[in-house]
Design a binder for these strands. Structure first.
Lengths: 216, 216
DNA sequence: TAGATTGTTAATCGATTAACAATC
DNA sequence: TAGATTGTTAATCGATTAACAATC
């Protein structure tokens, strides 16, 4: 067994890379061609040695006293995360959040290409303001097979999330980005990425509470 | 100095508590009055001893061989996270994501009460479909002061996020839930909670890539 | 009593931070 | 050469997991 799965990148690093990418793109637009880890750290207020380590995971090389080529970094991060390939995805559940994600400005440059949206509510069928076709759930199995789509963004109501997710797996979906508060029970091999809005609210409220009690 | 800031709860625990809460509420609706940590762990596929530890942070007591009172747990988690108090928040940036959050089904039971939304685009002023008033940014300073709102949800375009955030701080906002990909540079004392959609996409794509290369 | 589960303490694991050598 | 920054190895820190006693 060849150890192709190079040294397993820590999840926190994975989450920081898109943050660097966003910042680097803005810097590049402003004509900055070269940048050092301490500069990035100052701007994003994070530890410079952590920046060095994070960037090293993408395989890019920097030059002491100079830093990194901004362009090379952008390419390296995009390639490493797979943002340069068209990762076609279905959006399932064309409610408010789903519709918002359809018109998310630059998903395409962040690795996700929403090729179609699905809903079981007939009144939502049609074309979204952002140009994504909203199709009835009934047609998902056939389209998934034909287009070989492997990624689904789940934005249904929480109550039906489990049931819909099971259906998606039957249709050959390999990865689900779960934006519902429901925790899905699916086969091991399915990649599930949970994004809970409430989790973030909880952390924020707690921190706020703590800072407020400091002043007492 | 009294150590009121009890033992500092780890952030991962803070993020899991709303997940438990959601599950417990559903269980309570189904008439389940008592539940054990192993049961919760099985349902949410996470480690039962971690569930025990997480729940202990809220101060609730369980009974060996029986488990916890579901009702008590719900109360304890809500109280601990501050979900039981009305945490009034402004939503800033009434674009697609902002509008989606306005109609998010049960933010109110998860600690956040959006009392008003703001935008600088005149065409968006009015009342949202979910009943939230969308007001011009010009009126934010006065309203923030009058209503003593301390929390802002930032859903502006990334390009203006820093500038708007600074303005919010001037208006007395103490905590910002930042849903833009921009990393904000603000005074230390301001609580900033970053929620980047792209971070989650990155983790999912990478995991998918890894599982796929396993089969080769 | 027996057995399951809580609750707590200890061991492990992994990520962050610090230290320092290499290098441009 | 001098000094800043990369790159790597070691130390620290914190969270998860394991072990086990307490208890119902």
């Amino acid at each position: 067994m060849v150890d192709k799965q190079q040294h397993k990148v820590p999840e926190p690093t994975l989450k920081r890379l898109p943050v660097y990418l966003h910042y680097l793109k803005r810097a590049y637009e402003r004509g900055i061609l070269t940048i050092s880890a301490p500069q990035i750290g100052k701007e994003l207020n994070c530890d410079p040695t952590q920046v060095v380590k994070d960037l090293a995971t993408t395989g890019v090389k920097g030059r002491p006293r100079v830093g990194y080529s901004v362009h090379e970094l952008i390419q390296a991060i995009e390639g490493f995360l797979g943002f340069d390939l068209p990762n076609e995805a279905f959006l399932v559940g064309a409610g408010n959040l789903g519709t918002a994600l359809m018109s998310y400005p630059d998903f395409k440059s962040y690795g996700i290409n929403i090729v179609a949206a699905f809903d079981s509510d007939a009144s939502r069928i049609g074309r979204s303001s952002s140009g994504v076709n909203i199709i009835h759930m009934d047609k998902l199995p056939e389209l998934a097979q034909r287009l070989k789509v492997r990624i689904a963004i789940l934005t249904t109501p929480a109550g039906v999330a489990q049931e819909v997710a099971e259906h998606l797996v039957e249709c050959g979906i390999a990865a689900i980005w779960n934006l519902t508060p429901t925790r899905l029970n699916l086969p091991e091999k399915i990649v599930v990425q949970n994004t809970s809005m409430y989790a973030n609210v909880a952390v924020m409220l707690k921190k706020l509470k703590d800072t407020e009690s400091d002043n007492s």
